[in-house]
Amino acid sequence: MSIGHTLLGLLESGPRHGYDLKRAFDEHFGQDRPLHYGQVYSTMSRLLKNGLVEVDGIEAGAGPERKRYAITDAGVTDVAQWLHRPEKPEPYLQSTLYTKVVLALLTGRDAAELLDTQRTEHLRLMRGLTERKRKGDLADQLICDHALFHLEADLRWLELTAARLDKLAQAVNA
């Protein structure tokens, strides 16, 4: 999972300061692993260095002063590319995929297309494994089958998610 892309995506809806970013991240994705402040600031400084975000202003208030970050055009492009690039199908991918789907929904992008692209990638890998299995010996078959079953589980998840996109969009944008 790419925290950088996630935070960038969150910034797309408008400038936020670090504390806001952490809260937004935790709300959407941090169910079992909240983000540390330190991670937010180290990530932001990396993005700042790469020109994907800029400092929008500094808020002075009662407490310590806070930098407000905004996404740059380069940042928006980067998020788009990331979202549309299928993940390499591998086990336990769903946290990344979930993040991508939610972000796509939050940023008003086509989540269904994202899922389809991913699905195609999964099937391509499955086809490869199936082909290998046909030609291979029993050991190959067993190894391939292991991978195939996991990929199938992912694919089923993709299908299920695709079928529930409308509901998810409502929940996310609520």
Binding site: H122, L123, M126, L155
Partner: peptide, 21 residues
Amino acid sequence: PRVAAYADREVVVRDGTAREL
């Protein structure tokens, strides 16, 4: 999906329309 993996290509039919991915 595991059965579809035997194919060379897949077409998804959803709501009466097909998409060649």
